[in-house]
């Protein structure tokens, strides 16, 4: 044994605990699987491939002529996403400054309020915001736009305040040391540092909002989802196929645009 050093990454007890943890995870997974399986009508599931094939054959070819009726809702959808994103930024930027530890006026009072706003905006899906807003201000694209904006405030503010907290503080010190007022310290010392993050967050959220706004029509908040729902209701599968195709293309284009913008700015 002389001169031979034994090295282990973990102690034996620790190793056993980790194995036990994995065992527990597998057991929970199997239990859940059984629970779901017992409550499923397998009769319908066995049938699924045939039904899916049936729907697919009814849906092809897409009804191309229906595109004429899709241009306007598609335009609405784009507007809901774009205006919603812009609207959310107007609120998200101040909220982010209030929430960031290094810029908030008060860590004990203001910061918790800002964080609460962020969490409440983020915890509610835009579809649910739209459902509420359709009830409050009636159906249409205004409800959709506000739903998108409300959901995006939390998302943008959270990512932005994290960016603010990560800035280089000596650059801020240098601006303060010249005798600049607080508003100038923000505009010269902080804003240039978070611009790439702000631009990235904006196009990222815009890209997500295009996808989200395509389904808002399902609850009556305007856009292409409205056409999707009415086509589904009358089982017009060729129309559904065309709408899904259009959404697919719109999302690809938006992703391409946001990738281009991010590349240009950063």
């Amino acid at each position: 044994m002389a001169g031979k050093h034994v090295w282990q990454r973990r102690t034996t007890t620790r190793q056993l605990l980790i194995w036990f943890g994995w065992l527990l995870l597998v057991a929970i997974f199997v239990a859940c699987w059984m629970y779901i399986s017992n409550r499923t009508e397998w009769f319908f599931v066995y049938d699924a491939p045939r039904i899916a094939g049936d729907i697919f054959s009814r849906a092809t070819p897409p009804r191309w002529s229906y595109i004429e009726k899709l241009w306007e809702p598609l335009w609405d959808t784009l507007n809901v996403a774009t205006i919603g994103t812009a609207l959310s930024l107007i609120f998200a930027i101040p909220v982010a400054f209030l929430a960031a530890k290094n810029t908030t006026p008060s860590v004990t009072f203001v910061r918790p309020i800002a964080l609460f706003l962020i969490v409440s905006s983020r915890s509610i899906n835009s579809l649910i915001w739209a459902l509420l807003l359709v009830a409050i201000i009636g159906p249409g694209i205004l409800a959709g736009t506000i739903a998108i904006a409300l959901r995006s405030i939390g998302f943008c503010a959270k990512l932005l305040y994290e960016a603010i907290e990560e800035i280089n503080t000596t650059q801020v010190e240098a601006i303060s040391a010249t005798g600049a007022r607080q508003s100038q310290v923000i505009s010269y010392g902080i804003l240039p540092q978070i611009m790439p993050a702000l631009a990235g967050i904006t196009v990222f959220r815009w890209d997500i909002n295009i996808r989200e706004s395509t389904v808002l029509g399902l609850v009556g908040a305007g856009g292409i989802g409205l056409q999707l729902q009415s086509s589904l209701n009358i089982l017009a599968w060729p129309q559904v196929a065309l709408i899904l195709l259009v959404i697919f293309i719109a999302v690809i284009v938006s992703e391409w645009i946001s990738a281009m913008v991010r590349k240009a700015i950063i």
Binding site: N168, Q171, A174, I175, S176, A177, G179
Partner: peptide, 15 residues
Amino acid sequence: RRRIGMIFQEYALVE
């Protein structure tokens, strides 16, 4: 502070 200039180790320019 307007009358006190400061120069920093890592330059502290706004990049």
